[in-house]
Design a protein around this nucleic acid. Structure first.
Lengths: 221, 221
DNA sequence: AACTGTGAAGTGGTTCACAGCA
DNA sequence: TGCTGTGAACCACTTCACAGTT
């Protein structure tokens, strides 16, 4: 029988991940005065196949011309629009250790429509001190008690959990109560949240482990 | 026609990512004196379905008993073996900013068979200073010129690139020349390497962007 | 001739659902 | 009865290959 699956006007995650790379490439090409670009060029820059690029661009409603290529600046605008870069997404970081600082100091958020507006930590020693780079934004570290109020008054929807594993779940609970609906979880543990909230886990130790297992498997051949 | 696909004795990446979580859970259960565990218990702990757990464990050649469950310590040993945790994987970190330090100071590598043995940076100011936490290992930061020799004499196969985007490709070239075969790429750019080398890209800005796009799509509904 | 856009097949992974066994 | 182990269906994404268009 199998229902025809009508939905899916949304971008695949894999596509979302590549679009910003296309944008960076397109900006360079535009600065260099290029008017059109082939899928193969973008593909080489991002390290994927031309077919992937064309498929990705078909999602954003691209205006390529067969036999010619894509118009550089129109394409960049379309991709910008597809990613919703017109609206700024404000986020907070909880846990201002090295990992939290690394993110707080990242200078590439602006061109992606993202902005870190608040830093929080439990450590009383850290409260009131500053973090961030020149180039990004330098922010004062606030106590967790201020989190809910801050999230509300600053219209924050996204949070990064960069705490040790032991604190992560209780921080997540706080975030959920404060009205956060998207969480990037850099701690090593699974966070349970209501299903109105989206969590993306990223565990660097796991990523390295995957490399190690593959390396071992290769060596064994 | 379709060839029968004989290969595939290897673990899926998604499974590799979950196995360490099962291990942590199994260790806790063992300490608590539990002898057997159900797939549903492990599933709840890791935030997946029981079917996923059973599928994962079927890859490691598990010895569950129908109607009963899995024997805790035997299972933990099997999973350890499947991940190759007996052998230690040594790695180096290039780029000792906040991100590099966060990884250098991570205390959970040991239980995953991983060990950071060297730190490298271009900044002459940093050379000779130390990084790492008590609990992990405190290491002296070395100049890039020493990288190749170090990798050879210390039998290093895995590297973490935690440099700014501008330096990443040249660092990758150095790593490849030094004989590194697995790279975790935390810089925002695509690294081109020979296909004997495996690169896993992790871009935190991209992860947040995916959250932001989904949040926007949800809001629009 | 050259390059896009896209059905159709392939792939890696998850989910379903149930047979098999203590 | 209760849980595992696993075919088969399903799903998201990639790749192939080629028809369509300038």
């Amino acid at each position: 029988m199998s229902l025809p699956r009508l939905r899916r006007r949304e971008l695949p995650d894999a596509t979302i991940a590549r679009l910003p790379q296309y944008i960076r490439c397109l900006s360079q090409l535009e600065n260099a005065g290029l008017r059109t670009v082939h899928s193969a060029d973008l593909a080489a820059h991002v390290g994927v196949s031309g077919a992937v690029v064309r498929r990705d661009l078909s999602y954003v409603g691209s205006y390529g011309t067969r036999g010619v290529g894509y118009p550089v600046s129109e394409l960049r605008d379309s991709v910008n629009r597809a990613l919703g870069l017109a609206t700024e997404h404000r986020m907070v970081i909880v846990g201002v250790g090295h990992m939290g600082r690394a993110i707080a100091g990242y200078t590439g958020f602006a061109e992606r429509g993202l902005r870190v507006v608040g830093l929080f930590d439990i450590d009383p020693e850290l409260i009131g001190s500053k973090a961030g780079n020149p180039g990004s934004e330098v922010l004062e570290i606030m106590p967790l008690a201020d989190l809910a109020a801050f999230v509300h008054t600053n219209d924050v929807a996204i949070a990064v959990v960069a705490t040790p594993a032991s604190a992560a779940q209780s921080v997540a609970d706080l975030l959920v109560d404060a009205g956060i609906t998207s969480i990037l979880n850099l701690s090593a543990v699974h966070l349970s949240v209501p299903d109105t909230v989206v969590v993306r886990p990223v565990d660097l130790a796991t990523e390295i482990q995957i490399l190690a297992v593959h390396a071992a498997a290769r060596g064994r051949r």
